[in-house]
Simulated assay, not measured.
Amino acid sequence: MLNVDNLVKSFDSTGGGRKRATERKRVYAIGGASFDVQEGELFTLLGPSGCGKTTTLRSIAGLERPDSGRITLGDRVLFDAGKGVNVAANRRELGMVFQSYAIWPHMSVFKNVSFPLDVLPRNRRPKRQEISERVERVLQVTELSEYAARPATKLSGGQQQRLALARALVIQPDLMLLDEPLSNLDAKLRENMRFELKRLQRELGLTAIYVTHDQSEALVMSSRIAVMNGGNIEQIGKPRAVYTNPATKFVAEFIGTSNFVKGVVASVDGDEVAVDTVEGRLVSKCGEVPPPAVGADALLSLRPESIDVSLTQGPSTVNTWSGQVLTRAFMGDAVDHVVGVGKLEIRTRSNPTQSIEPGTRVHLSVDPTKVILVPVG
């Protein structure tokens, strides 16, 4: 449905002035991003601040003019640097929710939501009853029904953000662009809204691009995730695939928490790779990436929740360590232990009923299928 091809956007970091163009320093917010968004998909651009995700979204919306590249939506060309095409933002017919509220201060909550439908050309405008039904539905989803008659300026910050979301949802656009729309909500409402927004997106068959730096939000809501870093896309995939098989160290670090262990490949037998580390041999059997050659440097990623911690030694001798609990942290739904294993400090995550005092000797084990080989470099 949406195709973004080799999109590049740079800025003059020196501020221009009288300096010659050859002396000005260009900073690339987007360094050649390419991706497709399928119809009915919620596609998330995920990454830290400054990675280029919002600039990419604004380029799709027509609020930024890229240096080069091509953007198409269905059979419509929205931007093509080579052909000089740049459709104005108001003609792209996209729904967008900004981080700022951008609501109409002189209108009620109901009128703010109905406004995009009210101003449609007469031949495309729904009947008054349908407008009311659509507005009431999104107000209910965003928990604003009881405030329908209230002036928009009399809402709290979180309520105003939900109002902006409702206004974008009500028009049911071909493509909806969401720039961290839940950022101003309190923790519980934000969690509820993740599921409500995903449910509504599926029910209405909406196609959406969602920008966030919140990994949990991305994992819960996305059909697919594009992880961005320094203006480039490091990996695109379904949430589970990106989490369990990160393509780079950056992705492994940014999506969740990982213990990284360096080593040298000792042997390769099919999809089973043995790696010698500073604290003994670990075996990986994830089978998702081509194995490195014997003698090559290797980097292993161990997710905390994949490591079993026990007071007693198990029967297996593969991927086992002995160590001492250095510290622990109660997380509510889990307990994290940091265990000293020789020169390593290994973080584990277990059921909240298991809380082991610092100083206690413990045994760690991890299944070979949970030991992830991460590309070095």
Rank of each mutant, 00 (worst) to 15 (best):
N3G: 00
V4Y: 02
N6P: 00
L7G: 05
F11E: 03
G15F: 00
G16H: 04
G16N: 08
T22Y: 02
E23N: 04
R24E: 00
K25H: 13
K25S: 03
G31F: 00
D36A: 09
F43N: 00
F43G: 01
G47A: 02
L57K: 07
S59V: 03
A61M: 07
A61C: 07
P66S: 09
S68E: 14
G69I: 03
G69H: 06
L78M: 07
A81L: 10
K83A: 15
V85R: 06
A89C: 12
R92Y: 13
M96W: 08
Y101W: 15
A102E: 13
I103P: 08
W104I: 14
M107L: 15
S108L: 12
S108P: 05
V109D: 11
F115G: 01
K127D: 15
K127E: 15
R128D: 14
E130S: 10
R134L: 13
R134S: 11
Q140L: 02
L144Y: 08
E146R: 14
Y147S: 12
A149W: 00
A149G: 13
T153K: 14
G158K: 13
A164V: 07
V170W: 07
V170G: 03
L178D: 02
P181V: 09
L182E: 03
M193C: 03
R194G: 01
R199S: 11
R202V: 11
I209R: 03
Y210W: 12
V211H: 06
V220G: 07
S222R: 10
R224I: 10
N229F: 13
Q235W: 13
G237V: 06
K238L: 09
T244W: 06
V251N: 08
I255H: 09
S258H: 03
K262A: 13
V264R: 13
V268S: 01
G270W: 01
V275S: 02
R281C: 05
S284L: 04
V289T: 08
D297L: 11
A298H: 04
L302Q: 04
T312N: 12
Q313L: 11
W321A: 06
D333K: 11
H337S: 12
V338M: 12
V341S: 05
L344Y: 06
R349I: 08
T353M: 14
Q354V: 15
Q354M: 14
S355D: 15
E357K: 12
V366M: 06
K370V: 00
L373W: 03
V374P: 04
P375D: 05
V376S: 11
V376Q: 10
